[in-house]
Every structure is written in structure tokens, then in C-alpha cells.
Design a protein around this nucleic acid. Structure first.
Length: 440
RNA sequence: GGUCCCAUCGUCUAAUGGUUAGGACAUCACCCUUUCACGGUGGCAAUAUGGGUUCGAGUCCCGUUGGGAUCACCA
């Protein structure tokens, strides 16, 4: 076992959606491919927005998707650890108190931008006088805290972006502790990644500038800087699709009959030079993972395409994947699956073959004739053709006029598997009754 | 506006500076199927733009245009 370890760190402030899923997927696949571990971390430092309901739903989605995790942590249980490191860094001068109000900061930002300058924090807090401090105290103002970035070039080798570099001077010192004392994302995330031995961080490219700041944070807390991979963000027709704007929930997709593995196959290959094709196990998908095949531009995610792909996925899905979900035989599945749109439609066909169907009579004359000519069982491979030819001769009907009324009488549907394969599944008795217009 | 990133068929992408610019998905046509489908075979379809470097540029350089990210007391 290698010491490779990755994590998926959702904040329980919403449901699992397509953007989340992609991030989790790439992390899981990387761990699998490298023989490493995948851990789940609940980033619930935002008490206001974090909800148990979301957390539960997230786990449920993760399980459904097949992303099993071997370890779990929760940030809200680790405040003592963060506090200790916070105090250490405050003592070292790397974390400093600020008393600007959000309004003041906003004004500063706007003013800087209006002047064509970078809207980065001016570090006024580093120049407070005793008098300033006394005044804030008298006013009852509470501080928030920032992490002080050291000047210089911050560099890293990104698995997907290659060499990356930022000048620390052009970045804003990130706020890491709110006025109410609660932690923001940056700091706990670095502490945890360091403490839990995370070796690779795979996330969306909306985090690249965060990475620059966090590299200094890892160094400040004496942690090892992990290897980063920043995935190009998915875009939709309406613009970007991120964990905040992402509207396409995994639960909804599941409810619509989209297979977990279809989602994974699709997301893993979208934006790569591999063609999007069905993978019927996550292990196979992991084996095919290759970051060098990822493009650098932002792929468009189209739900229609996913749905379409899912249909293709289902139609060649092996029996092993559905045998515990539906009570049908392998033979039945193999015969009917080329006509399914979603897997659960197999139930519809199961019912048509084994339960009562009220036929739809389009051409009674034809179906009556068909009934009178229906040969008794046992049937063999030639039975259907022979039978149909007799109906054709007797009625003079052919093509669609011949097939459609029979199909409607037998299945009450417009389309489906070949009648030839369907007939033996329905059987003589039901066939005969339905041709006569009886519910059977 | 500062910083960072991106730009090839409708979509995802391939192409050591030399290819008829390739593949996949979609689409269209045809074939198979005595029906709808499934399946099979083909066709259509692209280097954003202006300069430069070079014998030769999708590829290297500069500009322009367009897009995205970030600059939150969100993550």
C-alpha cells in the first residue's frame, strides 16, 4: 500500500451535484489508480449554512456513486487543534487581527479597482497604533484575522496545469477567522490536509489562487505541501457550473434513471482526449485515468448529452449490474435491454410479459386473423416468421400495417423489442387473448 | 481594472514546425430488420483575428478579439 492519500471535502451546505461529483470522482479514481486512500472530510466550519440534512444526503449520494471512503473527519470536531495552531501563528506574526468592517473593505476594493489598481488588502491593520486599538476596544469592535503572505514567488508543479507561479505581493492576505471567531475555509483545510497526510489535492481551477496562499500556509504550519491538480471548470449553456451555481443534483439524476456509472464514465472522460464510452466498473475507469489526457480549456456540460449517453450505457449494461435491482432473468434482460431507455423500464417489459395487459386494438380484422392462425406451442425459431407470413397472405397487409396492430395488441405500446423475441416471452395463452382484445 | 488560464468540426478533442488537419459524440444518408427500435457502412463539418519568425505555422513570438477563474468575514 502506498502512502498516497486524497480527500473529498464537501461543505454540507447543499446537495451533491455534478460539479461536486466530478471533483469527488477524480479524487477517488486517483486514489484507486495509485493504490492510495480516499477520505471524506466534512468541512462544516460555517455553522450557519451547514446542515445535517445536507450531510446525510451527501453521504447517500457518495455511497450510491460508489465512492467508498476509508476514513472520515469533521472540522467542527477539530477546533482545539486549529486554535492551537492559530495562537502559534499569531505569536509568530503570521496571523494578524483586523478591524475593518465589511463595508469599509468593500469601499476600498471598489476604489482600488476604479483607480485601475489590484483590489488587494492594504494591510492597514499592521499599522494600528495603541490609540487605534484602544478605540476599537472602546467601541466594542471585534477583530477578524488574516494570514500574512510573505513576499516572493510562489511556485508549484500542477498535475494538469504544469508549472504555476504567483507573486505573493499581488495576492490579498486571506481572512481566515471571522469576527465571531469561526474559521473560514483556508486555514482548517490546510491544517487537516497536513495532519491527515493528504498527498494529492484534486479540485476545480477556481482554487488556483487559493493554492498559492495555501502553499505558504502549509509552510507556516510546518506541513508538507501536497501535489495539486486543478481541473478545468465545467461550463454549462448559462455560464459556469460550480458547486455554488450547480443546479443539477445527483439525486435528481438518479430519480431520472441515470446510472451512477454512466455519470462517472461521462464525467471522467468529458474534456479528455479519450472518447466518452461506458465503463461498467469504477476500477476499470480508474485504470484508464490519465491526467495528461485532460485538456486545459473548459468543457461544456450538457445534461441532454448525459441522458443520451445513459441510454447507450443502459442498452449494453451487463446483467451483473442489475440482477440485484430487478427480479428478471439474465436471458430476459439480454433480450429486452437493447430497447430500454432507463434500466427500470425492464420492469415495464417484465409486466407486459407476465402480468395483465389491456390490448389496444387498431385493426381487429387483422388481429382476429392473427389469433386464428396462431400456432400452438411449442414454438421454435421459425414459428414467428411462418405465422406472420400466413397473416400477411390472408390479410394482404405488410410492413408497418402488419406489425403495428399486432404490437399494439400484444404490448399496448408503440415500440419495443422485436416481436419475434417478444412473442415467446409473452407465451401462447396471453398472446391469443390479447389478439382477441381481451385483457390478459 | 490587477493577476492567472483558455481559443481546432455543433460538442469533447488529436496532430516531434512538413498529414488529403485524425478520432469520438451529435447530425444526415444508405444497409440490415417483413414494424418502432438495436445494429452496420458511409457523408457533411474546424485551426477566432492581424502581424511577425521560417523554405514551410494549427503548432513558435507579439498584438487584437472573445471566453473563464480569482481579487468574500463562501467553499
Amino acid at each position: 500500500m502506498s502512502d498516497i492519500k486524497v480527500r473529498f471535502a464537501p461543505s454540507p451546505t447543499g446537495f451533491m451535484h455534478i460539479g461536486n461529483t466530478r471533483t469527488a470522482l477524480f479524487n477517488w479514481l486517483l486514489a484507486k489508480k495509485l493504490g492510495g486512500k480516499f477520505m471524506l472530510r466534512i468541512d462544516d466550519t460555517d455553522f450557519v449554512r451547514s446542515k445535517k440534512e445536507y450531510e446525510d444526503a451527501m453521504r447517500e449520494s457518495l455511497v450510491w456513486l460508489g465512492f467508498n471512503w476509508c476514513e472520515e473527519a469533521r472540522q467542527s470536531a477539530r477546533f482545539e487543534r486549529y486554535d492551537a495552531l492559530r495562537d502559534k501563528l499569531i505569536a509568530e506574526g503570521r496571523i494578524y487581527a483586523c478591524y475593518d468592517t465589511p463595508e469599509e473593505l468593500q469601499i476600498k476594493r471598489k476604489r482600488a479597482m476604479a483607480k485601475g489598481q489590484a483590489p488587494i488588502y492594504d494591510r492597514q491593520a499592521l499599522q494600528y497604533t495603541e490609540a487605534d486599538l484602544a478605540k476599537f476596544k472602546a467601541e466594542g469592535r471585534k477583530p477578524h484575522y488574516r494570514f500574512k503572505l510573505l513576499p516572493g514567488l510562489i511556485e508549484w508543479e500542477d498535475i494538469v496545469r504544469g508549472h504555476c507561479q504567483y507573486e505573493a505581493e499581488k495576492l490579498s492576505d486571506p481572512i481566515i477567522i471571522r469576527e465571531d471567531g469561526s474559521y473560514l475555509y483556508h486555514f482548517p483545510s490546510c491544517v487537516d490536509d497536513s495532519d491527515f497526510g493528504i498527498t494529492h489535492i484534486v479540485r476545480g481551477e477556481d482554487h488556483v489562487t487559493n493554492t498559492a496562499a495555501q502553499i505558504q500556509m502549509f509552510e507556516a504550519i510546518g506541513g508538507k505541501v501536497p501535489t495539486f491538480a486543478h481541473l478545468p471548470l465545467l461550463t454549462g449553456k448559462e455560464g459556469k457550473l460550480s458547486k455554488r451555481l450547480g443546479s443539477l443534483g445527483v439525486r435528481e439524476l438518479k430519480a431520472d434513471g441515470v446510472e451512477a456509472l454512466a455519470i462517472c464514465s461521462f464525467l471522467a472522460k468529458l474534456g479528455t482526449s479519450d472518447s466518452i464510452e461506458p465503463f461498467y466498473s469504477l476500477d476499470d475507469l480508474a485504470a484508464s485515468l490519465d491526467f495528461s489526457k485532460l485538456g486545459r480549456s473548459q468543457p461544456k456540460f450538457d445534461e441532454e448529452e448525459l441522458i443520451h449517453f445513459n441510454t447507450k450505457f443502459v442498452r449494453s449494461m451487463p446483467y451483473a449490474l442489475i440482477k440485484d435491482r430487478f427480479d428478471v432473468s439474465e436471458e430476459f434482460w439480454d433480450k429486452v435491454r437493447p430497447n430500454l431507455n432507463i434500466a427500470s423500464d425492464i420492469q415495464v417489459w417484465e409486466d407486459i410479459c407476465n402480468n395483465a395487459v389491456t390490448p389496444i386494438m387498431e385493426d381487429s380484422e387483422l388481429t382476429d386473423t392473427a389469433a386464428s392462425l396462431l400456432p400452438p406451442e411449442p414454438w421454435d425459431d421459425t414459428t414467428f416468421n411462418t405465422w406472420l407470413n400466413e397473416i400477411k397472405q390472408k390479410t394482404g397487409k405488410k410492413g408497418k400495417e402488419l406489425f403495428h396492430p399486432i404490437r399494439k395488441a400484444l404490448t399496448a405500446l408503440d415500440n419495443g423489442p422485436e416481436l419475434k423475441t417478444l412473442l415467446p416471452l409473452i407465451g401462447y395463452k396471453k398472446t391469443l387473448k390479447r389478439l382477441k382484445g381481451e385483457t390478459a
